[in-house]
């Protein structure tokens, strides 16, 4: 595929366009009303992009739209220049997108190792190398690899969930509120891990409640309000923006 597109006239776009982009998306669930309005979310190679905003702003919805979990009626989703708007979530996983849902994101009755194996289900090649990488990133998982994932602590479960998504060797990783419901200490540790994952070269798109901490590690930030882009910029810019500070970061 990559070789074919090398001769494609769109090649120039590929150099300038972000690696993954949900471009001017408008849509909602099934036949329901539109939740997103002309909303654009993207992430560049090697970067971390975060989506923040008040409750009910459509943060998770925007991410789900990028992942194909709702009907996008206007706009397009492109991965590495290829239009993937019509693909199902499963097909997007095959195309190289890794997704960690906010809840029920692990197999609680399976062991940690089995969770990782199931993450690699679509792979027919030897995935032991990838598993070793995941264990390197999350040493605690190696220690607990024969325990049922449901018996782990909240932070450890999130690591299992991220590790599971990494098993497909995704080209981009999407995290839906990875720190929801964990203590501040665990949250800091999780953010450290996420930075580490990003350092391995995988672009990360995530939705976060904890806007300030998330923007601190973000290369790019999106503030959504009622399904629309309200502010866009680098993490630092948004943190410095007085309006963003006033309305979302509590001064």
């Amino acid at each position: 595929m990559a070789n074919d597109t090398a001769f494609h006239p769109q090649n120039d776009d590929k150099m300038t366009e972000p690696f993954l982009i949900g471009d001017s998306m408008t849509g909602g669930y099934g036949k329901g009303p539109d939740i997103l309005h002309d909303c654009t979310i993207s992430v560049n190679r090697g970067e971390i992009a975060v989506i923040v905003g008040p409750n009910g702003a459509g943060k998770s919805t925007a991410m789900k739209a990028v992942f194909g979990m709702l009907d996008v009626r206007g706009g397009a989703v492109r991965l590495d220049g290829d239009d993937i708007t019509a693909l199902t979530p499963q097909q997007r996983v095959v195309q190289g997108m890794g997704f960690v849902p906010q809840t029920s994101n692990i197999f609680t009755s399976l062991t940690v190792e089995e969770n990782l194996e199931m993450g690699a289900f679509i792979r027919r090649d030897d995935f032991r190398g990838t598993m070793a990488q995941v264990y390197d990133l999350f040493p605690i998982l190696k220690e607990k690899r024969l325990q049922a994932a449901g018996e782990l602590s909240g932070g450890q479960r999130q690591q299992v969930a991220v590790g599971r998504a990494l098993m497909t060797q995704p080209k981009v990783l999407m995290l839906d509120e990875p720190t929801a419901g964990v203590s501040p200490i665990v949250m800091d540790e999780l953010f450290d891990r996420i930075i580490e994952v990003a350092r391995t070269g995988i672009p990360i798109l995530m939705v976060e409640q904890n806007a300030r901490q998330a923007l601190e590690i973000a290369d790019k930030g999106y503030v959504l309000v009622q399904g629309r882009n309200a502010h866009t910029g680098t993490g630092k810019e948004l943190l410095a923006d007085s309006e963003v500070r006033r309305s979302f970061l509590g001064g």
Binding site: V94, P101, S104, E114, E117, I122
Partner: peptide, 22 residues
């Protein structure tokens, strides 16, 4: 077995199993 584990995974969490390509 891989198939057996995928059955357990499906029984445990259907949505995530679908997401994993089962």
């Amino acid at each position: 077995t891989r198939t057996g584990k995928s059955m357990r995974a499906f029984s445990d969490n259907e949505d995530l199993a679908l997401l994993s390509g089962i």
